[in-house]
């Protein structure tokens, strides 16, 4: 089975950690990944950029129609981009994509194309080198 491990932590506390201590944390993350790889359990990983740099794409208004089976299209709605991460709890994380794009704008353009944008918000976060 494949599992996604989602790493949650208090970001503001993390940002206050001095550089040398942070280097230690990253060493530990490196060692952790090495052990995952050695065990044959590793598939992929990445740290994510801070939430302030996240954008959330969300359909506003409109109604969802199903013109043909399995095809869901929002009619009359507008896709709006909001600053920050997706924060409400009414909806749940249902999947993810990792894509290569030169900048946030291109990434948002891809997110726009995603079928899920028709009915739910998509949070776009840059990945950072590390772990």
């Amino acid at each position: 089975m494949q599992y996604l491990l989602m790493l949650y932590a208090d970001q503001s506390a993390g940002l206050k950690i001095p550089a040398d201590a942070m280097a230690k944390v990253m060493d530990l993350m490196g060692a952790y990944q090495a052990s995952l790889e050695k065990a044959g359990a590793f598939v992929m990983t990445s740290p994510l950029d801070r939430v302030q740099n996240a954008r959330t794409l969300r359909m506003q208004g409109g109604t969802i129609a199903e013109p043909s089976p399995g095809v869901f299209v929002n009619q009359g709605g507008d896709l709006a981009v909001h600053d920050g991460p997706y924060a409400e709890t009414r909806e749940q994380l249902g999947g993810f994509y990792i894509i290569e794009a030169p900048d946030m704008q291109t990434a948002l353009d891809w997110a726009r194309q995603c079928p899920a944008a028709q009915w739910g918000p998509i949070e776009v976060r840059a990945m950072k080198p590390g772990f």
Binding site: Y8, D10, F42, V43, V51, P85
Partner: peptide, 22 residues
């Protein structure tokens, strides 16, 4: 995970036989 004071900071995708190993 249900609290909102903490944020998603990264992820791992792993492949293991069952929830115990995960």
């Amino acid at each position: 995970y249900a609290e909102t004071q903490e944020q998603l900071g990264g992820y791992y995708l792993i492949d293991v036989p069952s929830l115990d190993e995960a």
